[in-house]
């Protein structure tokens, strides 16, 4: 979805349709330009919505200094996919669970979208989604991270995420006592 236009070209785009462009151009920390549907950006990101409404969108590329090009590409890709996705027929025809809340579950394409990301790219995307106030994308990425933790012991969780255990033995024992109910079966 990358546009990567030269400066001159971007200038031209600006002149063509100043007011009623239906896309916005975003610029990553390393200066790459990306174009994204204005409607999707406003719907999915509270921050971009605020900027669009407040007229603080720069047609030469709105600077997003905290987001690298790889993460921004994923954000833009997600927005565009979201703009094109129709609720799947599978969702309608499959037997549904009545007892679980329906709103948080990621859709199939969203699952695939995050599944293909590397460990680092996933966390870059979480940070970008957080930065841009993208609730849905945060839900989807958080869901993925929780999937990576499910069914794992604390040791395994440390291993998966490279977390350093900074507790002393006594501290660990104290917490385990406090949470005896959570370790009941182990």
């Amino acid at each position: 979805m990358e546009v990567d236009k030269g400066k001159g070209e971007a200038e031209e785009t600006r002149k063509v349709a100043e007011a009623d462009r239906d896309t916005v151009t975003l610029k990553s920390s390393d200066g790459k330009l990306f174009e994204v549907s204005k409607e999707a950006a406003a719907r999915l990101s509270t921050v971009l919505a605020g900027m669009i409404a407040g007229g603080s969108i720069d047609d030469n590329g709105t600077d997003l200094k905290q987001i690298g090009s790889e993460a921004l590409e994923n954000v833009v890709d997600y927005c565009n996919k979201h703009a094109n996705s129709i609720p799947s027929a599978a969702l309608i025809s499959s037997s549904i669970s009545f007892n679980t809340a329906p709103f948080k579950e990621p859709e199939e394409w969203e699952r695939k979208f995050v599944d293909r990301l590397s460990h680092d790219a996933l966390f870059d995307l979480v940070e970008a989604a957080n930065f841009l106030g993208m609730e849905r994308l945060l839900d989807v990425t958080c869901h993925k991270i929780s999937e990576m933790m499910k069914g794992k012991s604390p040791d395994q969780i440390r291993e998966v995420f490279n977390i350093k255990n900074d507790y002393t033995k006594e501290e660990l024992e104290e917490i385990r006592q406090e949470l005896a109910w959570a370790f009941y079966d182990d």
Binding site: I145, Y167, L179
Partner: peptide, 25 residues
């Protein structure tokens, strides 16, 4: 965000994340 992730785990697993490291306490 960590809280959001933890709340997606089962009740036991969520509480157990406290022993991972002091950051998680």
């Amino acid at each position: 965000i960590l809280g959001e992730v933890v709340s997606l785990l089962s009740t036991k697993e969520a509480a157990r994340t406290q022993v991972v490291a002091s950051r998680w306490r």
